[in-house]
Write a protein that binds this DNA or RNA. Structure first.
Lengths: 149, 149
DNA sequence: GTCTATGCAAACTGTTTGCAATTTA
DNA sequence: TAAATTGCAAACAGTTTGCATAGAC
């Protein structure tokens, strides 16, 4: 069984489709395959990359406008996160893994994920101190990776 | 004396102009006034906002291309930081204050700055653990501010 | 059959670039 | 006067939108 994130894609897709129906929207193979790419991909993909991968890996044509619309649709459903690493291109990733932050190499643009309990807790404190209701956060550390030093 | 950041703008400008000369570049009133706007402004300004403020507050016309070029020039000099809060518009701010992070209201887009020692330290650790040479970081906490809850 | 989703191309936004004219040193 | 800077307009990249067609329910 091709499990990831502790669930098979088939199960995940079934739940997703049901959810879409219940909300009164319609399913499509485009949505399915964009979701599939995001499910199996470990990287943070741009809209162009998603369209390209759907074509190359599953031989399905998806217009770039559809990718943007679908990605926004997923975002509204709170299914994905979008991330701007500083180069003004949005990258997307599924939210089913646990929350993590990013370490970005300013030379080769490699992205490494990390989680830190202390930072997670501190954020709660900071939000509280400023009377904010915490919704989300993004932390990006910029540096030079081993290979680029 | 109109001091800010523990220094008058006149002194700051004089140092800046000297630095520019020493590097072999040329000074201009455009650079001066863009710097002045950034010096006195507490917010994080977009290129358009900078051009607008230079016009309104000092009645100096600056082409938008010049703002972008100047802002990049300042960035190369390590004088300013650029920040993308998630809406794909770059905002700029002078770096003379101590490093800080941002708390952004997802409803009214208010930006609150904060500093946290624990987080600063933790970042060093994380960079080290991943064999990164830390260069910079950006942390944005998203939430709902008091007024928008 | 109705209503949503898609694909295309055109529009749009923020940013960059080429070039001639201007300003600085 | 030589070199950097400016302003304009055109170019550009990523993203969004209008509209006619195709597909889902």
């Amino acid at each position: 069984m091709n499990k990831k994130h502790g669930i098979t894609f088939e199960t995940f897709l079934k739940n997703f489709k049901l959810h879409v129906s219940k909300l009164g929207f319609k399913n499509s193979i485009q949505k399915d395959y964009i979701l599939k790419i995001l499910f199996y991909c470990d990287e943070h993909l741009t809209a162009e990359q998603i369209a390209h991968k759907v074509k190359v890996e599953y031989n399905i044509d998806v217009g770039i406008a559809t990718v943007y619309r679908t990605v926004k649709f997923f975002e509204d459903l709170n299914l994905i996160d979008s991330l701007d690493v500083g180069d003004s291109v949005k990258r997307y990733e599924l939210k089913i893994a646990e929350h993590h932050d990013h370490l970005v190499c300013t030379s080769c643009h490699k992205i490494i994920e990390f989680t830190d309990e202390v930072i997670e807790e501190k954020q709660e404190d900071i939000a509280k101190e400023n009377n904010f209701i915490l919704k989300d956060h993004a932390m990006i550390i910029y540096g030079l990776c081993e290979d680029c030093q």
